[in-house]
Amino acid sequence: MKEIRTIVEAYKSIDFSRTQAALATVVRVEGSSYRRAGARMLVLDDGTYLGGISGGCLEGDALRRAQKGIALGRSSVITYDTTEDDDYQIGVGLGCQGIVDVLFTPLRPGSAGNPVEILSGLTDIRRPEVLLTVTGSPDQGGLGRTFVGDAGIGGVEAFAGGFPGLEEKMAADMRTCLEDRVSRTVEYGENRIFIEVILPAIHVVAYGGNYDIRTLLIQVKEIGWDSTVVLNASRADRSLSRAATRVMDNREPGLPAIDAYTAVLLMSHDYRTDMENLKKVLPSAASYIGMLGPRKRADKIFDAMAEDGYLLGEADRRRIYAPAGLDIGAATPEEIALSILAEIRSHFSARNGASLRLRKGSIYGHPL
């Protein structure tokens, strides 16, 4: 989501009376590649660009392709094959061993189907959305058409006038992509459609106002996630408040916005405060609840809650990470924040946080 937000903000600042632009989007990857389907690069006609579609090996050629698309005023799809040891092939010697399809789309402000303007409406979503893009069609004029769909037949029928006889198949493919949280390109006869799953940014809600939260919030911001810090606003350091996306006074009633893509962190360093905050957030939809401190501290809190009638079920215990963080030997506030955020990432990716060298098969999988 960070790349999408950055591109949208940059697009909004373009003076189109003086400058033209195009969007390069990875729409299919076969084999290995540094970036996956959905990676984007905003290109201006003066040669500057933002974002990336590879580890740097394809950007030079992609820049020229995008400028050509701007000049001709039409979309195109270029295939980069890095599997062949060919001196004339882009990516030679890089060892990527993958095939990458990149869609180049000239951007026209206000035009129907402008992909960046469509993406601008998805930057703050809190549930997964599906983006449909035509990446292959006998009608070359329709190449690059983009539409926000839903998993129902109605959404498919509205897409570019409909695909007669394919509505149910396309709707089923959209639902499969949503369930798997995976984007993929699907062929329907002579038509090729990139079904992209756009997922919400992870939202971190941190309870506490101590200095160690600031470094965590700075890392959250750099990653591109959202954050809310809940604290005593009258005593809060201004730099801490500036590091968060949102600030909520802990004396206000109710909870911050918490959904299935939210990770809650209890970081008050006060036993009773953390216990009361845990009671508050347990009924929420948060799938990750992290607590600082040793395991015996957490057990003490659980026992005290049980005495008060708050019995933790198996589902609750699975979503409570105490102590929070991966076992990386973290000692400083910065390292502890890194440990916690890595665990949050692995939680939402359904990974175990182990070394990639131990993983069987592709290093890419269920994403968020």
Rank of each mutant, 00 (worst) to 15 (best):
M1N: 10
K2Q: 12
I4F: 11
I4H: 04
T6P: 04
I7F: 08
I14N: 04
I14F: 06
D15C: 10
Q20R: 15
L23E: 11
A24G: 05
A24E: 06
A24Q: 09
G31P: 10
Y34S: 04
G38Q: 05
R40V: 00
L42A: 05
D45I: 10
D46V: 08
G51C: 06
G60I: 00
G60D: 09
G60W: 00
L63R: 14
R64K: 14
R64Y: 06
R65A: 06
Q67S: 07
Q67K: 15
I70V: 13
L72Y: 12
V77I: 08
I78W: 13
T79K: 13
T79C: 11
Y80N: 11
Y80H: 15
D81E: 12
D86L: 12
Y88V: 07
Q89D: 07
I90N: 12
G91H: 09
Q97E: 14
G98D: 07
V102K: 02
L103W: 02
R108W: 00
P109L: 08
S111F: 00
S111N: 01
A112K: 03
P115H: 03
P115Q: 02
V116M: 07
D124G: 12
I125R: 02
P128M: 04
P128G: 04
V130D: 01
D139M: 00
D139E: 15
V148E: 01
I153Q: 12
I153T: 13
V156I: 14
V156N: 01
V156S: 03
A158F: 02
F159V: 03
G162C: 01
F163R: 05
P164I: 11
G165T: 13
M170C: 00
M170Q: 09
T176R: 12
E179S: 12
R181V: 05
V182R: 15
S183E: 09
T185C: 10
T185L: 06
T185R: 09
G189T: 13
F194Q: 02
F194G: 02
E196H: 15
P200F: 08
I202T: 07
A206M: 10
A206H: 00
G209N: 08
D212M: 00
L217P: 01
K221E: 14
V230A: 06
L231K: 14
S234L: 10
A236G: 09
S239D: 02
S239W: 02
A243L: 11
A243V: 07
T245H: 14
T245V: 08
R246C: 10
V247E: 10
N250R: 09
E252P: 01
E252I: 05
G254P: 03
A260R: 13
Y261C: 08
A263E: 06
L265H: 01
M267R: 04
M267N: 04
H269F: 02
R272N: 14
R272S: 13
T273L: 15
D274K: 02
D274V: 03
E276T: 08
L278S: 02
L278C: 07
L278Y: 09
L282G: 11
L282Y: 05
A286K: 02
S287G: 11
M291R: 06
R295T: 13
A306C: 03
E307K: 15
E314Y: 12
E314D: 14
A315N: 15
R318S: 10
Y321F: 13
A322D: 00
G325Y: 09
I328W: 02
E343N: 07
E343L: 01
H347F: 13
S349D: 12
G353R: 08
A354G: 14
L358M: 12
I363E: 07
H366M: 10
P367C: 01
L368N: 14
